[in-house]
Design a protein around this nucleic acid. Sequence first.
DNA 1: TTGAAAGCGTTACCAG
DNA 2: CTGGTAACGCTTTCAA
Lengths: 338, 338
Amino acid sequence: MPTINDVAKAAGVSPSTVSYVLSGRRPISAETRARVQAAIAELGFHPHAGARALASSKTNVIALVAPLRVDVNVPVIMQFATAVVTAARSYNHDVLLLTKDEGTAGLERVAHSTMVDALILMDLERDDLRIPALRKLKQPSVLIGLPADHTGIACVDLDFGAAARTALSHLAGHGHRRIGLVGPSPAVYRRQTTYADRFLAGFLEASADLGLRTVTHPCEPGAEGVRSCMADLDAELDGLTALVVHNEEALRPLLDLLRATGRRVPEDISIVAICPRDVAISMPVNLTSIDIPAHDVGTLAVETAMRLLEGRRVEYTRLLEPSLVERDSCREISTSHR
Amino acid sequence: MPTINDVAKAAGVSPSTVSYVLSGRRPISAETRARVQAAIAELGFHPHAGARALASSKTNVIALVAPLRVDVNVPVIMQFATAVVTAARSYNHDVLLLTKDEGTAGLERVAHSTMVDALILMDLERDDLRIPALRKLKQPSVLIGLPADHTGIACVDLDFGAAARTALSHLAGHGHRRIGLVGPSPAVYRRQTTYADRFLAGFLEASADLGLRTVTHPCEPGAEGVRSCMADLDAELDGLTALVVHNEEALRPLLDLLRATGRRVPEDISIVAICPRDVAISMPVNLTSIDIPAHDVGTLAVETAMRLLEGRRVEYTRLLEPSLVERDSCREISTSHR
DNA sequence: TTGAAAGCGTTACCAG
DNA sequence: CTGGTAACGCTTTCAA
């Protein structure tokens, strides 16, 4: 492998000049630049990442801490990861993939050993133990999520509270007055994953504001979970005309169940789902949905990290506006039915 | 951040001694070792990864090149990734995540700039353009998949040919004689993703060996794709009593379709699926299936990479035995029906 | 517009 | 069993 010295000799310049040609951090005459670039190309020179990191204290790598379980939300996580990697590359950075399993120790390991310039975390919990650890790192971090105390740490996410309000006012606008929430699995609530709480809070608030009758219930995965969740909802509030579903896994079995029990969507019951667009349109009924903008959120997380690295100011809490797309699962209720 | 020199001073030894305490590459008296370790702990010393890489020409990072599209096989890809990261950590390595989109350039970039010690690639195509590039790298690589010409490169995968044979002989053993294959999407065949070809070849071979009447068809995603695939299969061979489904995405809509058209599983039609276990048991009918052992394959890929890095011998083609688990989707056909 | 040279923090070789 | 000290390959300050 040729080094910067080899290139310098071949081009008849000093190593520093080669370095400056590469970084563009100082003006170089067109002529020497050309000579240097020719030498680089001819020798197939590639700067050594470790040497660079050592000399410049920059690795051009960011850590992505992802919940690599197989249980929940797999497609969404994948979308986040894809967005983060793609965005990072567009800033000439690479991505080191860590699992959430390693916990605080993993973060400290990569940060202290200077493997990364910044960290992006997903799947934050309400009182996430990793946050105090993050504060002590010299590298900045960006959270995808919104834990309770996030002072001094940049957070990016969909505004789940607003999403719940949007869903309810859409249904209310269609005349619905009795509405059930099919929530995430109890495990998600138990972990206090921040989006579940925020959605639920927004839901209850909007329900009160709009004067609706609502019931909410977590929903275990699988056909059985859906069955029992629906039974609970129906038991606690009869005459349900609409459901808000904040649970990707539940959608398919839920639709199956409704069909099996003779409740047509949207004729007998309307649905607003919170899920990625492609999930919404891959169901037997094209679902009216509020998108989980994983791509935008991931990209924004990287952009925020980059600004932080440049020492620029950032907004420390950035919640993306939800946007509802009307499809085929919501129906106007005539006055007589109200 | 304290350096190795700070530690050396604090412990009253030379930096090289600290280094040797850390690496264990030469005997150290219990006493000095203790002093050094105390100093390390007290100062909170963490070796600088870049400096290490520079001095030792080892990064302790492996690249994982994953197909980060959102379209196909998302859960399986996630399982591979999880297994690779977990296994890598157990060898004290980290994982740099690259997308397949970057193609050959991405591999060369991380390899030439010495960011990684080895590469693991998934989603290989029959005549994958990246393979010649891999051969030129100084770092070893391990493929998850089996492209046509893989001489000199380690490959690890499920034995898809054997999986097809296993599926067919299971069905044949249950008396089935007319069997359809619901294959991956045409896009997968078009890309010549290696597992599709190998499965199909094994299927045709076993079909001939066992004297079966079989038809095969790719299957587009979604309800419509399944409908048209089934129509084709039925048209080309009537009296189908069993299906082999090598298409995760198709499973759910397929079961929906069969139910809608009054074909009960397994009473009227038997099914063997090739898919991860958790997919098989999350369907309305618990499916008899051949597992895609993503965890084992990912772990084995990392192990192979590690052996290669140690300069040890490896088997260059390692195809894992398929294992079929009987559940509720296959039925014995009585002689009268044959 | 360019060059020289001092680091950056480790490792590993050479001595003892 | 331990120490001294060249590398390792690049960036960046200081000078010119």
